[in-house]
């Protein structure tokens, strides 16, 4: 894992600290002329992002998630932070009527969204579906019991959570304007003295230069959708968002949904839920009364 933090001066009173975490380019914009302070805040941000990544990675055998996923049905006691994340996942599961489910990750074993036309075997999907369902696990805080074969995956909220945490950590130490951007999921505390942050969202078209520019001053913003992760079947293009009821990708969803809300976590959730609505994504976001930008 690359553990470098680099600092770049973007303007007289603006520094950008960059590092890599959660397989994404991460950037923290800090409204200060003080290079040492900016570097210190940059290191703090990276340390926090790496801490969350290490703690919740599915790939590291010592992570909290691996401990739960390899518990073979035994009750695992979790710490306060993990408990709040599981609590949050529970509420999201209930609120979304079961469509947002952190146990749905195993379905990825059947689908490879690499632009290919290979269709998975329906029996494989059905076999995997029997290992999906948040209602099958037992959560009595602070103990979680996950049936054998099931897996938890915080991939859908981890990055947004890290963005909000890093912003919180930095605002406790620094009063100037801050923008935390982890691979397009971002949060800001306020606009710099020079005016709102200008955020570019990549259009999922062939022309990568075309960007949609948005003004943003505070709160969170997140994007769901990926130009490169899709599958095409009989001319029908399926995105990488899977419907837990069928085990199949949601059809008719926009290529990308960007939502602005109070925090990055909330924006990310709304964007994911909108994707799950398929054709009704725009309608859903309209009903929610949040600022959103959908690209089809």
């Amino acid at each position: 894992m690359n553990r470098d933090v680099s600092l770049e001066r973007r303007a007289v009173k603006l520094h950008a600290a960059s590092f890599t975490a959660m397989s994404s380019p991460c950037e923290v914009l800090i409204e200060t002329a003080d290079e040492a302070l900016a570097l210190q805040l940059g290191h703090l941000s990276a340390a926090e992002a790496w801490r969350i990544e290490t703690k919740y990675s599915r790939y590291l055998p010592d992570s909290v998630i691996s401990r739960i996923n390899n518990s073979h049905g035994a009750a695992v006691e979790v710490d306060t932070e993990t408990a709040s994340l599981i609590g949050f996942a529970t509420q999201c599961y209930e609120l979304s009527g079961g469509s947002f489910d952190v146990t749905s990750g195993v379905l990825r074993k059947a689908w490879r969204f690499d632009g290919s036309k290979a269709l998975p075997d329906q029996s494989h999907i059905e076999q995997l579906l029997s290992r999906v369902g948040f209602d099958k696990l037992d959560w009595s805080p602070p103990h979680i019991s996950l049936p054998t074969g099931m897996e938890l995956d915080f991939g859908g909220i981890g990055k947004e959570y890290a963005v909000d945490r890093v912003l919180g950590l930095l605002t406790a130490r620094f009063e100037g304007a801050l923008l935390v951007n982890f691979g397009g999921d971002l949060a800001a505390n306020k606009a710099p003295a020079t005016g709102p942050w200008c955020v570019g969202v990549e259009r999922p078209d062939t022309d990568k230069q075309a960007r949609m520019l948005l003004d943003f001053s505070r709160g969170g913003m997140a994007t769901s959708g990926d130009t490169h992760r899709y599958i095409e079947i009989d001319g029908q293009r399926y995105g990488h968002i899977l419907d837990v009821r069928t085990g199949w990708p949601v059809t008719g969803a926009p290529r990308s949904v960007t939502v602005a809300a109070g925090s990055c976590v909330e924006a990310g959730l709304l964007a994911t839920l909108a994707m799950l609505q398929g054709e009704q994504a725009e309608g859903f976001l309209g009903e929610q009364g949040v600022q959103h930008w959908c690209l089809r």
């Binding site: 919180g168 406790a172 505390n189 969170g220 109070g262």
Partner: peptide, 11 residues
Amino acid sequence: IKPWERDVLAR
């Protein structure tokens, strides 16, 4: 206040 508004109280 909202959790992300705790910057001042966190001083």
